[in-house]
Design a protein around this nucleic acid. Structure first.
Length: 497
RNA sequence: GCACUCGUAGCUCAGUUGGCAGAGCAACUGACUCUUAAUCAGUGGGUCCAGGGUUCGAAUCCCUGCGAGUGUACCA
């Protein structure tokens, strides 16, 4: 830090020298006639015309040699070499050039030409400072060796990359692609849903009660009302209220907040997509999921065969559909379909797995799924028919009250989405939430809370409805082949230094 | 939460058996009218993550803490 202050001190001395020359270091106006990318795309034309151009950008290379100098100017479309000659710009302007630092923003007036060594450049008529850099930017240099780009002193410290994302984007421009794909994923989803007549809505982030998922919330306080408020853990219960209100097709894309552990697939705030469709069920949701992902793949990558975590993932529809019980049997040979608690517990013992003595058969079946099946599900799979016991918001399947019309989407061993035929029977719903409430009293901090207003809404009547949630962050990881959620969140949560 | 690994200059890294804290780039000064990791000469720059311990002597060995990564647990 001592040293950094010295480096900054030197830059501030430079700044003073520039001010002493009567030059504004942070001028208010700039005037750009061309983006660098345009000059590069139409190189021949610009060289031939000697048209006067003005580009603006950051100085990211400097090679001064006496009375001439070279440098590189970078904007968001590309990089071009600047050539400056004292005899051309005059001594006064050349002195300003000599006082510039890497990282300064400049406006460069001149004409395009090819240097004697063949480099496409702008010959400066005038260079103007647009913004002084005061803190040295790490310098990444590139060289072409055998036609391949070799980088020197790359900015790679993962912690620094996340803490100072602006430097990451500046010095590792290929990272921008993750966020461009992220934006495209969302815009394609919006376009598809809007095209089907879904209404995009915004429901409260600050909620007096939280629900719609099993998770611990962030708690805040409203001063005027003097009540606690919770940051939402899901949008589900509000979106269903809208279906009660007569919006038959709604969706929301927004942040959820869960006060839980962080790892490569979990950030405390994350972006979820939730969709509800009246007079539909979970089968319709499966088709929607297939359509969304395969369209995104085709449009963004031009293919539905994705390289991901060392696998070739085929997201072309249709995807495999298999029930949780069936998948457990496939992997272990164990048949849990009778929900016989003692039998399931014995199987846990046989496999030398620990289990919660008070857990019901549904919870234990889920445990078997997690232990034996999840990681095996590489190609996109709808895991269907979850136990009713662990699905308090899903409707039971007509033939078997132990199971619900619910599925989760698994790809490469990770979960991507969760959907059900929504429970719209208010009496059943109340019982299920009350059962959750008693779990909570037994110490399950993630169990659902009874939301009386939500149940009342159902009492007014909700049509049969299919609903689905998909994690946008994980989807972006899939389409950018990243295994850490921090690579697809611009400013991931970090502990303060 | 637990386990393992990592933390040295602005950046990327080296530092042997415990023996004066190092390199390249960046920065500063100077030279240089076609460079492109420009070059050449010179200069400055360190809380070796923090604290404690062992030792004549610690960046190095030990302990504790902090931060990060990976795995694992939990979290649909």
């Amino acid at each position: 830090m001592q040293n950094e202050n010295q480096l900054i001190k030197l830059r501030k001395e430079r700044l003073q020298k520039i001010i002493d020359k009567g030059v504004a270091p942070f001028p208010t106006r700039s005037k750009r006639t061309h983006k660098i990318g345009t000059l590069i795309e139409n190189k021949d034309e610009f060289v031939e015309n000697s048209e006067k151009v003005i580009v603006c950008g950051r100085l990211n290379g400097m090679r001064r040699q006496g009375k001439i100098g070279f440098g590189n100017v970078l904007d968001d479309t590309g990089r071009i070499q600047l050539f400056i000659k004292r005899d051309l710009v005059g001594e006064e302007n050349y002195d300003i050039f000599k006082l510039l630092n890497l990282g300064d923003f400049v406006q460069l007036e001149g004409e395009c030409f090819i240097t004697e060594k063949g480099e496409y450049s702008i010959k400066a008529h005038k260079i103007t400072l647009l913004g002084k850099n005061l803190r040295p930017i790490p310098v990444v240099k590139e060289k072409i060796v055998d036609g391949k780009k070799v980088k020197y002193d790359e900015f790679t410290d993962i912690e620094l990359r996340y803490r100072k994302r602006y430097l990451d984007l500046l010095l590792n421009p290929e990272i921008k692609r993750n966020f461009e794909i992220r934006a495209k994923v969302i815009s394609i989803m919006r376009r598809i849903l809007d095209g089907k007549g879904f209404l995009e809505v915004e429901t409260p982030i600050l909620q007096p009660l939280y629900g719609g998922a099993n998770a611990r919330p962030f708690i805040t306080h409203h001063n005027t009302l003097d009540i606690p408020l919770y940051l939402r853990i899901a949008t589900e219960l509000y979106l269903k209220r809208l279906v009660v209100g007569g919006f038959e097709r709604v969706y929301e894309i927004g942040k959820n907040f869960r006060n839980e552990g962080m790892d490569r697939t979990h950030n405390p705030e994350f972006t979820a997509f939730e969709v509800y469709q009246a007079y539909a069920d979970y089968n319709d949701m499966m088709e929607l999921a297939e359509e969304l992902l395969s369209t995104i793949g085709n449009e963004i990558l031009g293919t539905n065969i994705l390289d991901f975590k060392g696998h070739q993932i085929n997201i072309n529809r249709p995807w495999r559909r298999a029930s949780m019980i069936e998948l457990i049997q496939e992997q272990t040979g164990f048949d849990a379909s009778d929900f016989n608690l003692e039998k399931i517990q014995n199987f846990y013992k046989e496999k030398e797995m620990e289990f919660d003595k008070v857990a019901g058969p549904g919870k234990l079946i889920e445990g078997l799924f997690e232990a034996f099946v999840e990681e095996k599900l590489i190609q996109p799979t709808f895991v269907t028919q979850f136990p009713r016991e662990i699905s308090p918001l899903a409707k039971a399947i007509p033939e078997n009250n132990n199971l619900t019309e619910r599925f989760e989407i698994f790809i490469a061993g990770d979960e991507y989405g969760n959907a059900f035929t929504e429970l719209n029977d208010p009496i059943d719903q109340r019982e299920r939430l009350e059962a959750q409430a008693s779990l909570r009293e037994l110490g399950d901090l993630e169990a659902n809370i009874v939301d009386e207003d939500f149940i009342q809404a159902l009492e007014y009547g909700m049509p049969p409805t299919g609903g689905m949630g998909i994690g946008i962050d994980r989807l972006t990881m899939l389409f950018t082949n990243n295994s850490s959620i921090k690579e697809v969140i611009l400013f991931p949560q970090m502990k303060p230094e």
